[in-house]
Design a binder for these strands. Sequence first.
DNA 1: GTCTATAGCACGATAGAC
DNA 2: GTCTATCGTGCTATAGAC
Lengths: 197, 197
Amino acid sequence: MPKQKNTKQKILEAAIDLIAKNGYRGASVRKIAAEVGIRESAIYNHFKNKEEILKEIISQIFTTPFEFNDLEERAKKGKSFLHQFVVAYKLVSFDKKMEKLFRVMMIELFQNEDLRESFLEEFHQKDIQQISKALFIMMQDGLIRSADPMFMAQEFLSPLFYIRLRVSLLRIDEKSTAPIATQFEKHVDFFWESVAV
Amino acid sequence: MPKQKNTKQKILEAAIDLIAKNGYRGASVRKIAAEVGIRESAIYNHFKNKEEILKEIISQIFTTPFEFNDLEERAKKGKSFLHQFVVAYKLVSFDKKMEKLFRVMMIELFQNEDLRESFLEEFHQKDIQQISKALFIMMQDGLIRSADPMFMAQEFLSPLFYIRLRVSLLRIDEKSTAPIATQFEKHVDFFWESVAV
DNA sequence: GTCTATAGCACGATAGAC
DNA sequence: GTCTATCGTGCTATAGAC
């Protein structure tokens, strides 16, 4: 089934584009079909209804991108681990596909309960857990001062989220992100200075 | 014109409620009228069209709540100034009306260019400027370490924003915010420990 | 300033031919 | 798997009576 998958994929991509611009309600089946180059009725050969399209998109959002399998070893390096993490975070922030999915997430977050739960449990929690694990190791090794690792992880991550949000907003209007792009790295410096022993 | 204002106010309140739930597109003139208890056509005696309702709501969002006229004096007190700011920030985060407006802002942020500009220029910039001014004074007084005050202000504010976002999300589903509510104050402690000389 | 009535359009979805 | 045709509904907005 190579052709079917192709059309289904096209529908999903068109839907992501349109939802990222106008939200779920603004992305009508008509417009999605038009963008793909088929009729509305053809959509229903690939998805039961409009909501199924959204559900499949939402599942794409939370394919957690930041996972280090050798976390313990990396954490021993202290600041350079955090730096690596932020470089990966920055890359995702500027990746076109991921940026669109981020917009979809932010738009629908307040209107879709499933998405809210995934946000709090996956998006939020998974990063927190990974960073807090690393910070805990750094505390044991005496690299950073002692504190609640979970809370410290949130202090580390929330400025990154805010920068990402602003990057996303600026790029919608095609404004320059140059002054903001360096803030990712500046944050690591500031944070390390804040917690290093 | 006491009666006219009353109806207009009711329309605005109903619109805020509905937009906070379903977004601008989901808040139809029909539903707004039904909630107020009048017919759709009557709405147009108070607003030129649907968009005018949104514009008036947006203007309400950015009535900047955090302004200290005696900022210089307060800043000299160091941590307790930051604590005062956060208490005010927390109050706004839990205020019912402000919480609804926050939801409206977050929902429409990615779909409304005017709102985006106001967000970046008012919501973001105004707080940053005030906090950075205070931090600058603290640096001069040797209370905290030296750094770019604007950047440090952002490091102070962005975790607050993230906590506020999570509070807002939890409250939609009427989940407990008890564990999260204390994070506002914990953030001040953590931040002060990070920058205090 | 409210009502009834209605215009004109876009929406999601289905039936049935090819 | 795509098409044409169509249904029923909800939408914003206006006209005109009261």
